[in-house]
Design a protein around this nucleic acid. Structure first.
Lengths: 218, 218
DNA sequence: TTTATTCTGTGTACGGTAGACACTGTTTGG
DNA sequence: CCAAACAGTGTCTACCGTACACAGAATAAA
């Protein structure tokens, strides 16, 4: 786990690149054309170098993606201490969602086993500190996971929102509307009102309400 | 969206394979060695054919993965009607989690844009029918998404549970324990009690509690 | 029954991927 | 001054998905 920071160099030629430059170029490609467009070849070409030169800075593509994720998500918001735990967690979740939506490949990049970076830990730490008292350590972890799960669920749908949700689902749905009456009804009603931000807030409010019930029960 | 079912064949040689055979072989490979091990070459070899023969049954790899997902997740549980909405949703979530954990590549396969199959719609339909009254169509969709988000969050951690969570996180964490005091405390406490099933139930109960608050408020 | 049509599985080819390795040339510590 | 360390390049292997032409098999039409 030592590829996050640039290691000190003593002898030999001065490196022409930095890890930040590489990550930046890779992030730019992913932002513009999606994660599949990010290859060693492409990133190196974007910087005017050969692909093999990147291996002087990064052990492999897995680690490159990890660094991309780390840089793209960044650190957690810092000014949550003077809010109520509800507002703080809500703001935390909104901030995280913003980050995911600013880099729509980020969610895809977190699929499967991967190394976890310092910024990701900082996000966890941030949420844990604003969590209310009256929860065990395990429960605190679980609570953060539940909220993060909601963020990631919405982030996953956000690209697909409305346009493809009505297109992809609607295509199969219109054909078999009789097999899925409840889904058809819910989708048509949801389409009339619309808004994926509503979906996010609904889930967060339910989770926070549920946590409040638990806290006050104790 | 016509590659789900096998299309009728009239003239020409009898097909030596079926879509189910192909999907089954691919699922077996993914179960044993993970999703990256699933290639056209590998799946075809597993069946004793050349990779190009698969393209007679499936338009491309994207669709193959979609069929794999469809077959692996299967249909929703059917006997939820005589349960309370809480128990029904809890059972629904548990069933879905079981499916995801039985095929740990399934979550990874749902990352990014992808075609949505009939079984996935059936799962949605199943959850929507057991949902309590007093919610709008949009809210019903949001509620299902929130629960599904919890399932997917836990499913994503389940492979990493304990072993790697203490290894991957713990490695970086032990080095910077002073930077993440709340996280360190929560992790050590959680490790003492352990259990990823606890994490799942905790989140589900919070969400259901939150939904109950909303319902009773109306 | 013959003929024409349609479909299957195969072989070849192309452009792409990640990465191993040897090499040249630059930089700097001893 | 020189030897060690290191940067970037070029070449190579082993894969990947898939486009395309083809030979043979099965059937529908003649």
């Amino acid at each position: 786990m030592f590829f996050w920071e640039e290691r000190p160099r003593t002898r030999g030629p001065k490196p022409a690149l930095t890890l930040d430059q590489i990550a930046g170029a890779a992030i730019a490609v992913a932002d513009a054309e999606g994660l599949p467009a990010v290859s060693m070849q492409r990133v190196a070409a974007e910087l005017g170098f050969t692909k093999m030169s990147l291996y002087r800075y990064v052990p492999g593509k897995t680690e490159l993606v990890a660094v991309m994720l780390e840089r793209a998500l960044g650190g957690p918001p810092g000014d949550l201490s003077d809010l109520s735990w509800r507002d703080a967690l809500s703001a935390w979740a909104s901030s995280l969602l913003e980050r995911y939506e600013a880099h729509r490949w980020a969610l895809e990049a977190t699929a499967g086993a991967r190394p976890i970076g310092p910024n990701e830990l900082a996000w966890m730490e941030s949420a844990l500190t604003v969590l209310p008292a009256g929860l065990t350590g395990a429960e605190r972890m679980d609570a953060v996971a539940t909220i993060a799960g909601q963020v990631r669920m919405i982030a996953g749908q956000s690209g697909t929102a409305e346009s493809e949700l009505t297109a992809t689902i609607g295509l199969v749905l219109r054909e078999h509307a009789d097999r899925f009456p409840a889904l058809t009804a819910a989708v048509t009603d949801a389409a009339a009102r619309g808004g994926q931000d509503q979906a996010f807030r609904f889930g967060i409010e339910r989770i926070l309400d549920g946590m409040e019930v638990l806290i006050q029960r104790r």
